[in-house]
Design a protein around this nucleic acid. Sequence first.
RNA 1: GGGAGAUUAGCUCAGUUGGUAGAGCAACUCGUUUACACCGAGAAGGUCACAGGUUCGAGUCCUGUAUCUCCCACCA
Length: 714
Amino acid sequence: MKQLPEQLTKPFDAQSVEKNIYEMWETSGYFNPDTLPRTDKGSYTIVLPPPNVTGTLHAGHALTATIQDIFIRFKRMQGYKTLWLPGTDHAAIATQSVVEKKIYKEEGKTRHDIGREEMLRRINEFALESQNTILSQLRTMGASLDWSRLAFTLDDKRNLAVRTMFKKMYDDGLIYRGERIVNWDPKGQTTISDDETITEERAGKLYTFKYSKDFPITISTTRPETKVGDTAVAVHPEDERYRTYVGKTFDVEFAGCPISVKIIADTAVEKDFGTGALGVTPAHSAIDWDMKERHNLESRQVINEYAKMYGLKNEELNGKKVTDAREYIVNWLRESDLMIHEEDIVQNIPTAQRTGAVVEPLPKLQWWVNVNKEFKHFGKTTTLKQLMRDVVASHEIEILPGRFEKVYFNWIDNLRDWCISRQIWYGHRIPVWYKGDEIYCDINAPKGNDWKQDEDTLDTWFSSGLWTFSTLGWPSETQDFKTFHPTNVLETGHDILFFWVARMILFSTYALNTVPFKTVYLHGLIRDTQGRKMSKSIGNVLDPRDLSHKYGTDALRMALIVGNGAGNDLKLGEDKVKAYKLFSNKIWNATRFVLERTADFTSPVSLTKDDEEEYTKWQAIKKDITSDIENYRLHLASEKIYDYFWKTFCDVLIETRKTRILENKDTASAQTLLLTLLREQLVVLHPFMPFITEEIWKYVKSEHDNELIISSWD
RNA sequence: GGGAGAUUAGCUCAGUUGGUAGAGCAACUCGUUUACACCGAGAAGGUCACAGGUUCGAGUCCUGUAUCUCCCACCA
């Protein structure tokens, strides 16, 4: 370091160094635990939450990649055998609908015009392209992922894992086929799970009316069009008003359709709501379906998969959309003088998360995971729900921030059976075959020609739920699986706690009798400066690629981390990223100065008392930062190193030692202090700002030093 | 209806186990041929939402109130 390197005489240019640095890391083999030089501290594993292959990297991905990369780099420098495993998610419904829309727009064709095989080929093509984009974007974030272990939720290995898991659960009686009310998405033409619906508040009307003039009971509904499918009227057993009618059946003509209505008493009815009497439509309401089961009622479906009326005696109704049918029946009620009251109310309507369509409850034969069924599990009788609950209650899995434990328990306690079959083509096909009345479930197809495989595919979360171990080779007993499972930290957004985190806990505890990870670290959402969600329609999206190009990846990473505590939403504005670009410059310039002032430096000397004191103070700071990272307080750790570098190292230490060096007072000690502090700070800064620190490291490291990425933390 | 969170400087947010209120940005004053104006020095700015309580001591713990945000839920 006698001569100041040419590079350092110019201002820092992040763009020009990032690509080369990343290539150096990637070819070095340091991302791969098998070729990592120092691994004396045991294994440390994180699986990357696989991004959907539907789009490009957004600010949330940038955040998740940064947090995990910090943990991984920190542990790698401490000497752990670190594995950060990358992959992508086929995101079944989302991906298929993106491609379907694209094809419809460009060619005016539906998936049925194109056919299953060709459609799947096209979706795969799209997925592959999208995957490449996403992976290259992860590289620009500096993510030190082991690319040699890249996985995809829909590749052959993961497909084997899925089939194996399905078969095991089927044999244990935990997966069953059953008919009941499902959430049907009329736009996506598939069932969806409860978690895939979003309830929206909408203005609605509560209509109070009688089926006919001579019908004795007045009922209320928000969906008059379903009333042509009514098979009962339910009242509360203790309701005096209706007691005399219970058990009787009335045949009436309603809107041109004959219906037969039995009066039943059921405690699910609220006496004080509306008239205290409820028209029961088993085929189009989940509560009504349950009442049908309890009272052995008829069920009559009057709405089809396209949310249109069908099978009715009144031909005018058939083929009408539900909203039009509602208007028709309301008018009929008014004209027939049967409408008693109309009231404006706000109602909660379930809609499909992916397509936005209003969910139509329909009775369907589907595959389910039974979460309440007792079964023998490694010698103990338990349920899936219980397994999921226990490992968190016992703190075998720690959820951060802790408040999400309550959210998790709340979800578990209200959990109903999970509908896992989907009527779309893109996904893992259900490994079940039919021949007449026979059903065959196995990992592979049965022998013989007459078997026909179930047409449905599995919920995408069924495959991503296996992610911590399907990526490590399960069901084979691989070395990877033995070394890296259970994983250490699962870092993801709190919005997928139920979808994904809970399902991983379910599958891992069930199949392996072990937790999938020890710690769950949940980050918040990234919002714009006004606290709104980033969305294309508002136009407030900050693209991480733009920010990275403009200010450098290191600056972006710092902006995402500093002050962003676990679980909290982050309001991100460009100003914040800019501020950390200035910090990059500060580091760069400070390095230039230190190297200039130590050009004649030969070897370290023992420090003067003052210098020794400063070094001791720094060591305390470093210890503090280490403890912050170990305790998942990245927002504090990053702020502390920023603060020390700028306020103490630059503003105080460089300024005072500069004078001493100029005046030639204890020069060697001052030089030793500055160089030592600079080097040690680069180490601490590296997980947060990997590019600039690795670049500078070239100029300050001694000959026998390794690259910074594998330099020792301590 | 149930649950969770937030409320601290003009703005964005820290404040780990209770011990004299912090940072960044913005604004103000002064300075800069000496690593960096992508800078430095300085000053200013807060009844920690409100009301009680526990404590020698509360931004921090407890109770209640208000406002906002989010999640869950089959009042038709």
